[in-house]
Amino acid sequence: MSVQQLFFVVFALITIFSALMVVSLRNLLHSALWLIMALLGVASIFAILEASFFAAVQILVYIGAIAILIIFAVMLTHNIMSVAETQTNRSWGIALVMVVIIFFIIITQISTWPGFNTRLQALNIPGQDAVLAFGTGLVDPQGFALPFETASVLLLAALLGGVFIAFDQRREKKS
């Protein structure tokens, strides 16, 4: 096993263990902290994949923003579900069986694809090349200009919708 494979296995185990904690812990805030750990693990997987930009974006957007938002929401809605109460619904057994079955279906299906065992070599992308190509592609009219603008509209909709839903003017005025 090479050094790279060792690193991959370590980070993959960290990610999977943290994800397991996220779905199984009763205390929501602990779940959120383990979610941060899982996201960090995914970020290091991206770094091993030589997707530097996305490794950094993973830390910045997911941990710096989404996880913080989730923690804020947990604190805004706390004291509802006590820790002692069970956090899963009755059908967890069926769900578990289903998940395991789906896993085996996925693996048997994709392992028939000939490229399944391809070894990924180092790409050796020098300096800014990947980011440069990405940036040009985003605004290139022959490239992805339209999806990019649409993404901006999606973000706008999320901003307006989120503020509109969360911001209760009646109550704010009363207080």
Binding site: F53, L60, A65
Partner: peptide
């Protein structure tokens, strides 16, 4: 090569 974003991310 993404040092600037890393800088912001560490703040997070």
């Amino acid at each position: 090569n993404v040092a600037v974003i890393f800088l912001l991310a560490v703040g997070g």
